[in-house]
Amino acid sequence: MFTHVTLGANDVEASHKFYDAVLGALGHQPGAYNDQPRPGVWYMTPRGMLGVVTPRDGEPACHANGGTIGFAAASPEAVVAFAEAGVAAGGTAIEDPAGPRDTPFGKMHLAYLRDPSGNKICAVHRPG
Rank of each mutant, 00 (worst) to 15 (best):
G51L: 03
V41W: 05
G24F: 09
A98H: 05
G40R: 07
V12F: 05
A78Y: 03
K107F: 09
V22H: 02
H109C: 09
G106I: 13
P37S: 15
V41E: 00
T92D: 00
G67H: 13
A21T: 07
L110G: 07
G27V: 07
G31V: 03
I94F: 07
M49S: 04
A81F: 05
A21M: 09
I69L: 15
D11R: 11
A123E: 01
R47W: 05
H125M: 08
V79T: 11
E84Y: 01
Y33W: 14
N65W: 13
A14N: 13
G128T: 02
G91L: 10
K120D: 08
P97R: 13
G118C: 09
K120T: 14
M44Y: 00
P46D: 11
D20G: 01
A111W: 04
L110S: 02
I69R: 06
D115W: 01
A32T: 15
A111T: 07
P55C: 11
V52C: 10
T103C: 11
H28S: 03
K120L: 12
E77K: 11
A9W: 11
A93V: 05
Q29H: 10
A64L: 13
E84Q: 12
R56H: 14
L26F: 03
C122T: 09
W42F: 15
V22A: 04
A73P: 12
H28M: 01
G8D: 10
H16E: 15
D115G: 01
K17I: 04
V5N: 04
D102R: 13
G8Q: 10
L7K: 05
Y43G: 09
A88F: 03
E77T: 06
P76K: 03
